[in-house]
């Protein structure tokens, strides 16, 4: 279909009814997945800091999940009877984020200096208050560093989820491949790349904003 690499007329004509909706679906799919992953990872992470022996098994299991290639993960979920669409996509995307999110919650809480905790205890704060008012706020930059890595991974993997009918920018890529129409492929791939890079830099800015006092070393270590 056509010889030119990009047909701008197609881009203009399909911006409103195909390109922007795909972009929006992509953003929603990723945001929902990362949010669900956070809701799961934060309590697990906190629990692990109180029960150290769980750290190794938890990182092992989430590490195995993280290593499973996405198309394989989707296929396994579908083969056990989950219908194609957003559900298997979100399950897999959530699973991929768990390792980095849990690890960064644990590392973040661990990074709180002992003296700070003792001062808080000396001021009469209960463990619950210390968690909410001292540990989590101080762990926040490292948790955000985890959210950043998880988000970038999720945006990338979500493109593949279009193959199992979850929608998003991957839809443009796969439809373009099917029709051998380079414009559609390039629009999908470039937008997914831009989204990923924007999320990366945007969350990096948030992370820096949250830690004006410290050097960036901990961020790199996480």
């Amino acid at each position: 279909m056509g010889d030119e690499l990009i047909r701008w007329r197609w881009v203009r004509n399909n911006l409103g009814d195909q390109i922007l909706p795909a972009l929006w679906q992509h953003v929603v799919l990723c945001a929902v997945s990362v949010l669900i992953a956070l809701v799961i990872a934060i309590p697990i992470g906190i629990y692990v800091t109180r029960h150290r022996s769980l750290y190794t098994p938890v990182t092992f299991i989430t590490g195995v999940l993280y290593t499973i290639p996405s198309l394989s993960f989707f296929a396994m979920l579908i083969s056990i009877g989950i219908p194609i669409g957003r559900t298997p996509a979100i399950i897999a995307l959530v699973a991929y984020s768990l390792l980095v999110l849990i690890r960064n919650v644990v590392v973040g809480i661990d990074s709180v200096p002992r003296e700070t905790l003792e001062a808080a205890r000396g001021m009469g704060l209960t463990s619950r208050q210390i968690l909410r008012q001292v540990e989590l706020p101080l762990a926040l930059p490292i948790i955000v560093a985890g959210i950043r890595i998880a988000t970038v991974t999720t945006i990338g993997v979500a493109t593949i989820a279009a193959y199992i009918a979850a929608g998003g920018l991957g839809d443009l890529i796969f439809r373009g491949i099917d029709r051998d129409f380079s414009t559609q492929i390039i629009v999908g791939a470039v937008l997914a790349t831009l989204l990923s890079i924007i999320a990366d830099f945007g969350l990096l800015a948030v992370e820096r904003q949250l830690r004006p006092w410290s050097r960036r070393r901990a961020a790199r270590a996480a």
Binding site: I173, I185, I186, A189
Partner: peptide
């Protein structure tokens, strides 16, 4: 680091055209 942010499907799909 920026290169790592590029989705793998995007890299493979871009090879096609």
């Amino acid at each position: 680091n920026v290169g790592r942010a590029v989705p793998s499907l995007a890299i493979l799909a871009l090879a096609l055209p």
